[in-house]
Amino acid sequence: MTAEVAEITINHVTEGGLAIVRPSGKLDTLSAKTFETYLKELVDQKAGTLLVDMAEVDYVTSFGLRSLLIIAKQLAPSGDKLILFQVNPSVVDVLKISGFLKILTVVDTLDAAKQLAGPAG
């Protein structure tokens, strides 16, 4: 699904049993709910640990942070994780200022994310 109003495009692939999600655009008031719903559907499908490629996300507001936190909390009881990788420097600044770098797992590369995710299945 692509929604122009939401200013975000999201797709994912499954690679080695891991869901790799690739959002593109802004994670703001208009798009955060779309993003959250997309990730919740993956959680409901028991996709396991979610690796989110943030390279194409250039803007995150508190609504976007809230969506990330909700998904991370939803995954925690099953032992699965939300791992962000290739995070845009301006988004890293937002995560740092908001204290979310202490809450969320953020790594530089897909390989690092896969290592943290551990064996799929």
Rank of each mutant, 00 (worst) to 15 (best):
T2L: 14
T2V: 12
A3P: 05
E4M: 05
A6G: 13
E7N: 11
I8A: 06
I8Q: 09
N11S: 15
N11V: 09
H12I: 06
V13L: 12
E15L: 12
E15V: 10
L18F: 08
A19N: 06
A19R: 14
A19E: 04
V21D: 02
V21Q: 03
S24P: 00
G25A: 08
L27C: 12
S31W: 15
A32H: 03
K33N: 05
T37M: 08
Y38H: 15
L42R: 03
V43W: 09
D44M: 02
G48I: 08
G48L: 09
G48F: 00
T49H: 05
T49L: 02
T49K: 06
L50C: 04
L50Q: 05
L51E: 04
L51V: 04
M54I: 00
E56A: 13
D58C: 01
Y59C: 00
Y59Q: 00
V60N: 01
S62P: 12
S62W: 13
F63L: 10
G64C: 05
L65I: 11
R66K: 13
S67M: 09
L68V: 04
L68M: 11
L69I: 02
A72F: 10
K73C: 10
Q74T: 14
L75F: 00
S78K: 13
G79E: 13
D80K: 15
D80Y: 15
K81G: 02
K81I: 02
L82H: 12
F85Y: 15
Q86H: 12
P89S: 09
P89H: 07
P89K: 04
V94I: 09
L95D: 00
K96T: 14
S98C: 05
G99Q: 04
G99M: 03
G99A: 05
L101I: 00
L101C: 04
L101W: 01
K102T: 14
K102P: 01
V106G: 06
V107F: 12
T109V: 06
L110N: 05
L110K: 13
D111V: 08
A112H: 00
Q115N: 01
G118C: 09
P119H: 12
G121P: 09
